[in-house]
């Protein structure tokens, strides 16, 4: 049978297939109206409750940067992790693994696809926090946003990577407290890292949320610029690259389970 399909073409860098996958991820979520509505409404409900629960505005001002970073991590991780797991449990990942598409393209495609939604959620939270909850901040809004983009990139990749270790939804749900909760308590969200015992400080030094909280506080409370928090940004970007590479490497193992 004649086959007019060429197997050539750049497989080294993200190819058009990554965009094909991204487009499909977006298509799927857009067609699932209820999920789409939840993605948009849940951050608003959560932020309203949090905003109302703070007795004093000054406390909220202090906690807001850490909260923004934590929620960006949490929502993005959840969205990417669960959706990527579904790809495997419904068997479509098997089809992709047998196709000419590269593992890197699959991970990058998913990253692009979820990124739109994670970004929308983060933007909603950010604007709501600043304009409705009336949190006071220094620094530029666009710089806060750029910083959050780096946080989200890492979080989406972390979700994809984590889901390769889960074989079903129940297992994936168990990873949420394991991955998210320790970061909330160890990364300076609630109390300064310096007040914890040494060994916990070391642990916090390898957790990405530590750098997200530090950087965002410096910008929002200290009025610093993206260049001032360059080290934090570089660490978060490095984390995103590392974790997406690991996700691509573990893909085959996961699909063949």
């Amino acid at each position: 049978m004649p086959s007019s399909i060429s197997s050539s073409g750049g497989s080294r860098m993200p190819s058009s297939q990554a965009f094909t996958i991204a487009a499909r991820v977006i298509q799927q979520l857009v067609r699932d109206r209820r999920t789409l509505a939840l993605i948009l409404v849940v951050p608003l409900v959560v932020m309203t409750l949090i905003g109302l629960s703070f007795p004093e505005g000054s406390v909220l001002d202090y906690i807001a940067p850490a909260l923004l970073a934590t929620l960006a991590l949490f929502f993005s991780f959840l969205l990417a992790g669960i959706s990527f797991l579904r790809e495997r449990s419904q068997g479509t990942m098997e089809r992709l693994m047998v196709s000419p598409v590269s593992r890197g393209d699959i991970v990058v495609g998913y990253l692009f696809g979820f990124f739109i939604f994670a970004l929308t959620q983060t933007l909603i939270i950010l604007l709501f926090t600043i304009y409705v909850l009336d949190v006071h901040y220094y620094g530029d809004l666009w710089q806060i946003f750029i910083f959050q983009i780096v946080v989200i990139t890492g979080a989406v990749n972390l979700g994809i990577f984590t889901s390769t270790f889960a074989r079903n939804e129940f297992q994936m749900v168990q990873f949420i407290p394991l991955i998210i909760l320790p970061q909330v308590f160890l990364c300076g969200v609630l109390w300064p890292v310096e007040q914890m015992p040494d060994y916990l400080q070391w642990l916090s030094a390898i957790l990405p949320l530590t750098y997200a909280v530090d950087g965002l506080r410096d910008i929002m409370l200290g009025g610093k610029s993206l260049i001032d928090v360059g080290i934090e940004l570089a660490i978060l970007a490095g984390f995103a690259v590392l974790i997406s590479t690991l996700a691509a490497l573990t893909l085959r193992r996961g699909a063949a389970d």
């Binding site: 799927q28 419904q90 068997g91 089809r95 047998v98």
Partner: peptide, 16 residues
């Protein structure tokens, strides 16, 4: 991979 087609046991489709 472009030379083979594969129909897994599951339906393996995007439901939405």
């Amino acid at each position: 991979a472009h030379l083979i087609g594969y129909m897994p046991q599951l339906h393996s489709l995007y439901a939405e």
